[in-house]
Nucleic acid binder design. Structure first.
Lengths: 319, 319
DNA sequence: TTTCTGTGATGCCCTCGGAGTATCAGTTCC
DNA sequence: GGAACTGATACTCCGAGGGCATCACAGAAA
């Protein structure tokens, strides 16, 4: 591994060489470079000695490039150009015009608010790349704490210290059931109607908040649910319902595009509630690219197709 | 056009930054770089001021990269690498391991000696690119004089001053005639047999030496040729012969792969002679890449499939 | 041939910036 | 509260880079 770069020349030498090579005339090049001619002669001599190669064939009357000089000149411009762009790139990164934001999300986020946010963000900040990872709430929380994730779209449990969150979505769930299910003919269901029906749920660890609210809703309705299967990610629950293994809960937002063999019905009375937040690590100096993303994600979310009344005031704002 | 590159930083700044960014520790980085820690602190501060961007987030106890610093670090290595390769490339060019040789050639050269030379040269000097242009002798001579051509494979006329040449090929021509031609049944022909047959030749200007030797051979045989067509490049003469428009001269070397409709027959007695030389501009300091090519082209040419006795001693050698 | 003009190289001196030493100011751990 | 460690600052020194004057040489002009 090249741990050290030691250069036998300086950028000054290279810039001087370039000008002499372009003009093939020391005096004029010196004038262009705004230095005296002797300084230029010395600088070129130093560069030649540093490289161990003669760069110019000088007669008393003419200056010509040697093959080595020609090779150097040919290769020099791209290098100088990318060197010059270094500062611009660094400034762009500082201004949040470049960068990478690592984003975690759950299936509900991708089914609801996330696509619109991504599209808009890419429009506003084309220089910032996004890295998207679907992962459960629990994993996102630890990744956020470890700094492996810039921000996450997840389902909040208790508030985690050091984490700022902003509520994006709060929806009463409905029920997804096989189309041929007896209850599918009703327009609306109640939890207690489902006492005898096996449920498809998910491992509590992945989203304990929603899991617990679900069981609380059952308790409130005076029913003990029959949990037939646990599956993850939740999107796979649709397949199990379709196969007739049971019914499951689902947000109305998620229920827009469904196969024919399943039916979505809203719940009246007690119902589990899904909450989606965007969360990021509290910090006084947020990465500019991340700050830009969070700013967009926490904007007034009317354009996400949610009715304004379903949303509480913002919990926190970056910066 | 960016005529001037002015850098607000030096390579020293960049190398220092890189080391601090890698170690995230000023004191240890200073030790690695073999400077005192204050010098490093100042250099980084200067770089930050020059770029107008904070590169490190320093607490009294910890150093971290800012987004700008991360961006700079990410982009820096490739630039430093190509910068470091500059000297190697220049040295390689001086040593003749890099470069470009512009080569002119005629059809005869490509049909005989050139392919083997090109193959061997590419094997020995993979870093040197070759630019190949087919052009007549006259054009090559002026291009060589003007420096637009490094060396040429052509048919010598009078020796041109300032040009070094080396004879590669000297062959008595035979005759190429349509397969159904009456004379095609003979194993060998004489020029005077061809008195009544129309000839396909070429404009004298393109190769006056061979043209004149051809007419001289006719005169020696006591025949005045009937010139039916003039065509250039000479390879196209095969097509005309094939079409039955006449016969033409050809080297045995060229006559190895021919269509069925034409027949090659050697000449006994007087016959025009083709000469092929490689020539280059006489100079005390030849471009290393060109020198390498000329050295190969003027090597003992046995491997070109020519009998040694048909070749005079080398006329000149580079260097 | 001689003179003149223009080329890049060299000698001398000065200045400015980078480096080292010593030290400071703040943080963390015991 | 002290010890140990961090990066930043003050001060001095020195050498690299620059300018000015000049040299050595090659063509052009007379």
């Amino acid at each position: 591994m090249p741990s050290e770069y030691q250069f036998p020349f300086t950028l000054r030498h290279l810039a001087y060489f370039r000008e002499v090579a372009r003009q093939l005339h020391f005096r004029r090049a010196a004038e262009t470079l705004a230095v005296a001619q002797p300084a230029l002669s010395r600088a070129i001599a130093q560069l030649e000695q540093a490289l161990g190669v003669r760069l110019f064939a000088r007669t008393r009357r003419e200056v010509a490039l040697t093959p080595a000089g020609a090779a150097l000149l040919r290769q020099l411009d791209p290098v100088l150009r990318s060197l010059a762009s270094l500062s611009d790139e660094a400034r762009a990164a500082a201004a949040g015009e470049r960068g990478l934001v690592r984003i975690g999300f759950t299936g509900l986020a991708m089914a609801t608010v996330l696509p619109a946010i991504l599209r808009e963000f890419h429009r506003r900040h084309p220089g910032i790349r996004l890295e998207l990872n679907e992962s459960p709430t629990s994993a996102q929380l630890s990744d956020l704490a470890a700094g492996d994730l810039g921000c996450g779209f997840f389902h909040p449990d208790a508030t985690t210290p050091g984490l700022a969150t902003h509520l994006l979505l709060r929806e009463r769930n409905g029920v997804l059931l096989p189309a041929e299910h007896a209850l599918a003919r009703r327009r609306e269901l109640r939890l207690r109607d489902l006492a005898a029906t096996p449920f498809v749920l998910f491992p509590r660890v992945h989203n304990p908040g929603f899991y617990d609210r679900t069981l609380a809703a059952f308790a409130q309705a005076g029913v003990t649910p029959r949990i037939a299967e646990e599956v993850w990610p939740r999107a796979n629950a649709v397949g199990l319902v379709r196969a007739g293994l049971g019914v499951t809960f689902m947000c109305p937002s998620e229920a827009r595009t469904l196969p024919d063999e399943v039916t979505f019905r809203p719940l009246s009375g007690p119902a589990p509630e899904s909450r989606l937040v965007v969360g990021w690590k509290q910090s006084e100096s947020l990465d500019p690219a991340l700050a830009a993303f969070v700013a967009l994600a926490t904007e007034t979310p009317r354009r996400n197709g949610l009715s304004a009344r379903s949303l509480p005031p913002a919990a926190a704002r970056p910066r």
